[in-house]
Simulated scan of single mutants.
Amino acid sequence: MDLRKLEPAGLKRIREKDVGPRDIRWLVQVDVERAALEERWGATEIAHDDFAKWFCFAFSPAEGEAFILLLQVDHPVAGFVLSVTKGLFSPEAAERIVQALDIPGARITRTNSEATP
């Protein structure tokens, strides 16, 4: 995917259930407030897995690509976990995703070491 096309207008909210857990990997931690995401992108979804209950926002910026922002409901930490599909698994894509979210002050605080060159 051409990262230059990652713009707010190109992001499409999708259902969390449409993002297969086997298709995504943790990429970065994003310091962003849930309230700011909800104001810009609408209400969170609640997802459940074997480990926890999660607030989540899922997006598809292009055919075949997706990313999801997750925050544990019962034990929230600072920021959301950003997990992405294979085509978005890079620090450059993470930066573009955070920009495309269009939330003032949102920033990456931690990056998966497997994604760094």
Results as ranks from 00 to 15, higher is better:
residue 15 R to V: 00
residue 23 D to T: 13
residue 100 A to V: 05
residue 96 R to S: 07
residue 51 F to K: 10
residue 68 I to T: 06
residue 75 H to L: 13
residue 98 V to F: 10
residue 57 F to M: 02
residue 63 E to C: 00
residue 87 G to M: 01
residue 111 T to D: 02
residue 51 F to Y: 12
residue 90 S to M: 05
residue 44 T to K: 08
residue 43 A to L: 10
residue 18 D to V: 01
residue 83 S to Y: 00
residue 80 F to L: 11
residue 90 S to N: 07
residue 69 L to K: 02
residue 91 P to Q: 11
residue 34 R to N: 08
residue 36 A to S: 15
residue 90 S to A: 10
residue 109 T to A: 08
residue 93 A to T: 10
residue 24 I to P: 00
residue 103 I to M: 02
residue 26 W to Y: 14
residue 62 A to H: 07
residue 91 P to V: 13
residue 25 R to Q: 12
residue 62 A to N: 05
residue 85 T to N: 09
residue 48 H to D: 13
residue 71 L to H: 04
residue 47 A to P: 00
residue 117 P to A: 11
residue 38 E to Q: 15
residue 6 L to G: 12
residue 86 K to V: 10
residue 47 A to M: 05
residue 48 H to K: 14
residue 62 A to C: 04
residue 7 E to L: 15
residue 52 A to E: 12
residue 14 I to G: 03
residue 71 L to D: 02
residue 85 T to R: 07
residue 9 A to R: 15
residue 99 Q to K: 15
residue 37 L to A: 05
residue 1 M to W: 02
residue 56 C to K: 01
residue 61 P to I: 08
residue 84 V to K: 02
residue 8 P to R: 06
residue 28 V to A: 13
residue 89 F to N: 08
residue 26 W to L: 10
residue 113 S to Q: 12
residue 83 S to A: 15
residue 77 V to E: 15
residue 100 A to M: 08
residue 84 V to H: 03
residue 116 T to H: 09
residue 83 S to E: 13
residue 103 I to N: 05
residue 41 W to K: 06
residue 78 A to P: 00
residue 114 E to M: 13
residue 14 I to R: 02
residue 11 L to M: 07
residue 67 F to W: 06
residue 53 K to W: 00
residue 89 F to S: 06
residue 26 W to I: 01
residue 18 D to N: 09
residue 11 L to G: 03
residue 14 I to M: 03
residue 116 T to S: 12
residue 17 K to T: 14
residue 33 E to R: 15
residue 105 G to V: 04
residue 86 K to E: 15
residue 30 V to N: 05
residue 4 R to Y: 07
residue 67 F to E: 03
residue 88 L to A: 07
residue 70 L to W: 08
